[in-house]
């Protein structure tokens, strides 16, 4: 198949950028979106042009490194799919495809389609962990957890930290990302001791990073390659409200 790409090109963080048109010819419908870009980049390299920079790592939808705004949809038209797992059969021959980087003040462009998502790391550093005692691991069944809690915690833990939620959000809010971690740990016994302090510091960090406010448009849930539910945001706000009343101590 033959495609026309409109790709955001930007030489560096402070350089001006613009959309540039490329032809992608002889693309197999079985290629992934990133493989299609690889083909274009090979040609650009052969022609002496700078290849298009984009992030990727596992290419199997589990690491969260990839992430492109494709035709105005974070990770493209396929629901519950990261960019690396999107295949060219999702597009029709002759299609025009717009490819842009995640756009947010908290995700500055490094080059072309690659953005700096360390703001998400700093939100995790603010409390997205449990302070576990080291030593031999406990017997698996020593701590009982209700089945619904396990299911909801696991669904939230599926977050790969790609940042599509904030990219898709009309307010550039990272609420779904932060809420997924707060929900994951808040539903498990191990997460209880730090639960309310965690809500305060992670929410505080999210604001400091310059993300926007949640209007509950629901765009994040639709964009999420792991289909994490906006119910997590309800839980985050509940924990934050309670923590604000108790001062983070229980």
């Amino acid at each position: 198949m033959n495609l026309t790409l409109h790709v955001w090109r930007q030489a560096g963080p402070d350089a001006p950028g613009k959309m540039v048109r490329y032809e992608a010819n002889d693309i197999s419908p079985d290629m992934s979106f990133l493989e299609m870009l690889d083909v274009v980049n090979e040609r650009l390299t052969a022609e002496g042009e700078t290849p298009i920079a984009f992030d990727h790592d596992c290419r199997e939808g589990i690491c969260g490194a990839c992430g492109l705004m494709i035709n105005g949809i974070a990770h493209g038209p396929e629901k519950g799919t990261a960019t690396c797992q999107l295949h060219m059969r999702s597009f029709s021959d002759g299609a025009a495809i717009y490819i842009e980087p995640w756009r947010a003040r908290a995700f500055p462009v490094i080059r072309d389609l690659a953005v700096d998502r360390s703001s998400l790391d700093r939100i995790i550093q603010a409390g997205g962990f449990i302070t576990a005692a080291t030593g031999g691991s406990q017997d698996a069944n020593a701590i009982l957890v209700p089945k619904e809690n396990v299911d909801d915690a696991m669904d939230s833990a599926a977050c790969i930290g790609c940042g599509a939620c904030a990219a898709a959000c009309p307010n550039a809010s990272a609420s779904l990302f932060t809420a997924a971690k707060i929900t994951h740990l808040g539903l498990l016994p191990q997460g209880q001791p730090e639960r309310y302090r965690r809500a305060l510091s992670m929410v505080g960090r999210m604001d400091l990073e310059g993300f926007g406010s949640c209007t509950l448009h629901g765009e994040c849930q639709e964009a999420c390659p792991k289909e994490i539910s906006i119910d997590t945001i309800t839980r985050m706000n509940r924990d934050f409200l309670r923590a604000s009343v108790t001062g983070g101590r229980e």
Partner: peptide
């Protein structure tokens, strides 16, 4: 902003 943005849920 984006050159192109398609709302999915809003």
């Amino acid at each position: 902003g984006y050159a192109k943005q398609e709302h999915q849920a809003a």
